[in-house]
Simulated scan of single mutants.
Amino acid sequence: MGNFVDYLGIEFTELSGDRVVARWTAGPTMHQPYGIVHGGVHCSVVETLGSLGGMTWLSGRDPEGKVVGVNNNTDFYRAVTGGPMTSTATPIHQGRSQQVWLIETYADGDDRIVARGQLRLQNLYP
């Protein structure tokens, strides 16, 4: 997937143009100065899952198409210091020129949401 995805430790358990599910473990290397997971980590997970889902969906329509993120809006609901996380991405809109994906992250074993992001992608054609 790439060095940054490897660094974050994101492991994909499901990857399609309709749904992306990944597990990752939050820990001290991801902390901001107050000892909680940095918001940029959550934004990175949103960007990664939404982009891969969008890329997978578009490649089924145009194998040479590409996607690029044009807006990433992530809300943080609960601070976490570490532990296993599960993030799920689902499309809200998949059109000719743009896609919008919703990505939610939960701490494993907990029903409460940690972060929720929306990613807008631009579809690019050769």
Rank of each mutant, 00 (worst) to 15 (best):
M30K: 04
G117N: 07
Y77Q: 14
T81L: 10
L15D: 03
L52A: 05
R23L: 09
T81I: 12
R23E: 11
H93C: 04
E47S: 10
L102C: 07
G9R: 03
G117S: 11
S59E: 10
Q99I: 04
L102W: 06
T48H: 05
A26T: 08
N72A: 08
I92M: 15
F4C: 04
V5F: 04
V37D: 05
R23K: 11
Q118V: 08
G117I: 01
R116A: 01
M55E: 05
S16R: 00
T13V: 15
T25V: 14
M1C: 06
F4A: 05
E64T: 15
M55G: 02
L15S: 02
G54Y: 00
D111G: 06
V114K: 12
T56R: 12
M1V: 10
G40A: 09
S51A: 13
D62P: 03
Q122H: 14
V37H: 03
H31P: 04
P84W: 07
M1A: 13
R78L: 12
R112D: 03
G117P: 14
C43Y: 10
G69C: 03
S59M: 05
Y77T: 11
D62N: 14
R61K: 12
T105S: 15
D6F: 06
E64S: 15
R19W: 01
V46W: 13
L49Q: 08
H42M: 10
G9S: 12
F76E: 07
G27D: 15
L119N: 03
V46Q: 02
L119D: 09
Y7D: 05
D6S: 12
G95F: 02
P33M: 05
V67L: 02
G95M: 02
L102P: 06
N73Q: 11
H93D: 08
H38G: 12
L58S: 01
V114C: 07
G50S: 11
T90D: 08
I113E: 09
G27A: 13
Y77L: 15
G109E: 11
A26S: 14
Y34D: 06
A89R: 01
G82H: 10
P63V: 08
L52W: 12
T48K: 03
I92W: 09
G2D: 14
V80G: 03
V68S: 14
V100R: 12
P33R: 01
Q98D: 07
A26H: 09
L49G: 08
P28D: 13
G2I: 00
E64F: 11
I113D: 05
P84F: 07
G54C: 05
W24T: 07
R116F: 00
Y106D: 00
G69Q: 02
Q99R: 03
G82Q: 07
M1G: 14
E104T: 13
I36W: 00
I103M: 13
R116H: 04
D62Y: 07
G117F: 05
V70D: 01
G60L: 09
I103V: 15
E64K: 14
G27F: 10
P84G: 11
N123Q: 04
F4M: 12
L102M: 09
R78S: 03
T74K: 12
M85F: 15
N72R: 08
L8P: 07
D110G: 04
A22N: 02
M1K: 01
H93W: 04
I10S: 06
W57C: 00
N71W: 04
V114S: 03
V114Y: 09
R96A: 10
C43V: 03
G27S: 14
D110T: 11
D75W: 07
A115N: 08
